[in-house]
Design a protein around this nucleic acid. Structure first.
Lengths: 204, 204
DNA sequence: ATGACCACTGTACCGGCGGTCAAGTCGCGG
DNA sequence: CCGCGACTTGACCGCCGGTACAGTGGTCAT
């Protein structure tokens, strides 16, 4: 949670933390404005209503997450030219990043939106959908490169494998939070890495 | 969603559907009581407050889910004596069950509780935690049986593999809902099955 | 210096929602 | 016919999302 440079960013910071711990419907504007030391009118100056807050929240979240993913997998590319090995390094870096979060992963807004669909307008739901589809394409691209060199050992659909990357993270976050063990998420990513290695490695 | 035999069950049916589509904080008692054709006092006769509703909701959900899992993996046991093959059959049956849901999986209450932690008292959070831990133990038992016969091909922690079963389902549900493709969840389960097979099969 | 604009504040109001309270109703089994 | 479980009636409270609109202090270009 970086220091807010403007009231608008401060509102988003506070709202994000609250939404991830209480859900969107459980987050009150009154609570946000008192924490941000702003008036109700001040809040509605920045966001027309709660739906606009949700959209800004989700958009900002997706931008930062995608920047992190770009960074990790770009660095992994620099460390190894081979697509399989570079991807495995990327997953390891990702797991380490998740492990270094002191209080565990704060939660994924995509999941909260998915579990409160009927609270949002079509625009927010579409944004959420496009985010998942973008991750699917991102990982599918890498997996196709890998499969071109290393034929998969099992007859799997690469798109489903791409979804598994996102799904493992989403599932790992739910588990981590529910049991209160921050280690669960990084462990799940490492296990996913084991599957990818097993799937594409020629006779380990 | 079976037909309610009592007003109490009817309230739980309506509340469950609403909580899974709008979140707990987004579900209003007024909305539940008008759908259940009951008065507000009638609602509070059955549940002292929203927290007690949450507890009853979660408890009932866990009981039915565990009964379904018992049924599936018991049937799989009957179909094949070998623990690995029986587990693989169980996962297939599970995937088929998820595929046959006409509108996709309605969502998992464990995930909604995990993503609205601060809305509930300690009792509800503990119930949620115990549910995940019970699934961990359930699958860990099976995996230990399998590993005793088929040594895993990769040096994995079986508890983490057990968590992966639960995590795949939770992640698969989030993805399915977010992209609006009911097929994603069953696909993820089938892919998990591919990993289990790959992990334990002696040189496929 | 002045005026326009940005980022807010102040105040008053609305209906919905979670929750409380006390008293009453209706059917059913003992 | 009495008691009990499963509700209803109706009045009330304070919080919350949202609306409306007039006002204010600082910054910046002219």
């Amino acid at each position: 949670m970086a220091k807010a440079q403007s009231k608008r960013e401060l509102i988003l910071d506070i709202a994000e933390a609250s939404v991830l711990s209480k859900g969107f419907g459980g987050t009150s504007i009154d609570e946000i404005i008192s924490a941000a030391d702003i008036t109700k009118s001040g809040f509605f100056y920045h966001f027309r209503d709660k739906n606009h807050l949700a959209r800004a929240l989700l958009q900002r979240y997706l931008d930062t997450e995608n920047a992190i993913l770009d960074d990790i997998f770009d660095r992994a590319r620099d460390l190894h030219g081979d697509p399989l090995h570079s991807f495995l390094i990327g997953l390891k870096l990702f797991a380490e990043l998740m492990e270094d979060l002191p209080n565990g992963h704060p939660g994924c807004l995509v999941a909260t939106v998915a579990y409160s669909e009927r609270m949002f307008d079509q625009e927010v739901r579409d944004l959420n959908r496009q985010a998942i589809l973008a991750w699917r394409e991102r990982f599918l691209g890498v997996l196709k490169e890998i499969a071109a060199i290393y034929p998969p050992r099992d007859d799997v659909d690469l798109m489903t494998v791409a979804d598994m990357i996102t799904g493992t993270v989403e599932g790992g976050i739910v588990l981590s939070r529910a049991v209160g063990e921050t280690a669960v998420l990084p462990q799940q990513i490492v296990l996913l890495r084991s599957y990818i290695r097993l799937l594409f490695s020629p006779a380990l």
